[in-house]
Design a protein around this nucleic acid. Sequence first.
DNA 1: GCAAGGTC
Length: 828
Amino acid sequence: MELIITEKDNAARRIADILSGESATATRENGVNVYEWGGKRCVGLSGHVVGVDFPSEYADWRDVEPVELVDASIEKTPTKENIVATLRILSRQAERVTIATDYDREGELIGKEAYEIVRDVNEDVPIDRVRFSSITKNEVQRAFDEPDEIDFDLAAAGEARQIIDLVWGAALTRFLSLSAGQLGNDFISVGRVQSPTLKLIVDREREIQAFDPDDYWELFADLTKDDEPFEAQYFYLDEDDNEAERVWDEAAATEAYETLASASRATVTEVKGRTRTDSPPTPFNTTQFIRAAGAIGFSAKRAMSIAEDLYTDGFITYPRTDNTVYPDDLEPEDLLDSFVGHPELGESAQSLLESEDDLVPTEGDEETTDHPPIYPTGEIPTRGSDVNEDEWRVYELVVRRYYATVAEPAIWEHLKVVADANGCSLKANGKRLVDPGYHEVYPYFSTSENYVPAVDEGEKLAVSDVELEAKQTQPPRRYGQSRLIETMEDLGIGTKSTRHNTLEKLYDRGYIENDPPRPTQLAMAVVDAAEQYADQVVSEEMTAQLEADMDAIATGEATLEDVTDESREMLEAVFEQLEASREEIGDHLRKSLKADKQLGPCPECGESLLVRRSRYGSYFVGCDGYPDCEFTLQLPSTGKPLILEETCDEHDLHEVKMLAGRQTFVHGCPLCRAEEAGEGPILGTCPECGDDEGGELAIKTLQSGSRLVGCTRYPDCEYSLPLPRRGEIEVTDETCDEHDLPELVIHNGDEPWELGCPICNYREFQAREAESGSDLEAIDGIGAKTVEKLAAAGIESIDDLTEADPESVADSVDGISADRIRTWQTAT
DNA sequence: GCAAGGTC
């Protein structure tokens, strides 16, 4: 029996199909697909099936000095037990083994991991390695016709990376976390990829904070030809004889304005027309795909998640790729043919096929062996059933990008007109799209035109509507998610498969907030500390050096030991500096952690108000002076609070936004909200503090729209009873004998709901809850804890769950993945 | 419980 091992199940299935001529049959072993035909078996791994870690005696953070990790031994242990077990069983029975993992460095390492598992149970079996960069018939056949061997040097290069990343990451993460007393879930992490990425964001924020705006002025005027006005802008020649539009001196600007305003005509001094070719875009690699999806509103995470689904379902090729050159055997005519006749995608495909020229696809600069660029397979999903609206939009983007890469260039005509008005120069730049070319099949780029009429030199044009605009230079803009991912790629940090995850990690760790991401005080402090004591870990040069070292290992010029020993020595040196400043670093980190929670001054004692979390997990605002000052404010129960930059003029407190997926809303200043908390009719005495303090119960409407019966002495007394969100509340004359409160009726729809006494109603509600629990608990895998978490995201019932968007819920709830939510949704 | 890299 011959065994073929691939990097993933999908590849195993396709290779089995190709080699067997579609005759392979699938069976399952330990939950792993095994494809079988004529004496051959093919099985897919799931990327790395073993991982590196320290021995268990290093597991307790408090028992081990972080520096001890530098020279600790490192073990490899199976992380996907079922796959490893299956591989062992299959290997025992194999007479020949072929490793067919991806054709890149990490694929070589994954292949070597498989090799070791095979060797462990079968000492003698021959083990080959095949390499192909796209799973097409010709490529795969060719690869299996000329098998090669595993490149152990290349795999060792990957192992060096694993070791260096683990040692630096774990030792420094533990050091910072321990020095700030942040153990458990809120540890402070650093790493070779995440920290330089964070530094990009922090550096930009520092520029923004240090930015000092300059005043300048710009002048505009309308010129008219044949009764058609067009806009022109004033310019002058600067000291380098370049055309400049910004006037930095107010007196000069005013003078130019007066000169222009007094001119009734301008004489055309220059007319320059030129034709520009606008080349179609290159094929999608992961980064360019994320960028294009970002331009139509998808976050990096969401775009990749959808692309992965489209890939798994067979609609597009593998979405994690660096390659921007299509494989030779991809025939544009064949692929386009599969779209002809489709109601939405057919017309463009038809028009491309009718082109008189041969279809020659564009090529990007990056030609790699990992996978082909991202393009549609020709299998078309049905909109609304196979894919939802978002998935369709992403799919259509991939299809149209493919169309664009085989389409004609667009042609623009540019026309520049310069005119002189009383010695002041005015210019207008016109552009017209004369041949839309690829834009016709790829409507995602702007094709807006700017009208400037044809004029002749010496022609006189009327001048009107002169305007002087006072402006200020702007600070640089924050990086958007896709710009960050592009910059990471340019700097060589992270990989096509991990860059978008790195951003998610920064969000999860409390380093960045909002979109475009903004660094927290904690992030600024972590980068500060790292720059001062462990500059390597926040510098992209660590990756550049590692890449060079890995190349040296791969070519045999260095060994894994050479490289990791040297790296460990550097880290030892870093620790000498760090240890000496442990206290100082810890203080700085702790202060920043607190600063991230600060809203502003407490109205009662002047200390800082902080966003805090109650024992039950709900958020509220409390005073840093606690227990001396017991001032508190409520926050809405839905979502996770984000402190905004904006502050309230009246109370000098930061405004708060509640992040809850699609139910996200701005709560504003919590003190304003408390003051406004709509107080409706008084119902009676507060059962909790009425006798002692004179509190009364009133119907209140909160900013979030939810309503309740609460004490008028709130926040000193937190007694409250829930009320339904919708419907008009009628306070009747009937009174509850037991609680001496009026009975309530809710008018919503046809049938009024006799809610009765709010205390009795709440008691009944609690009794029902106790009996049945939340209906969500009926779903497999949802327990009381999860119910609580989901409730914070506004999901309180099965109905809420089925309607929810898994991605946005996963965004707002810690520790619940979109996939888990999808599983529950299908289970209902 | 630490990293980054695969994959789902």
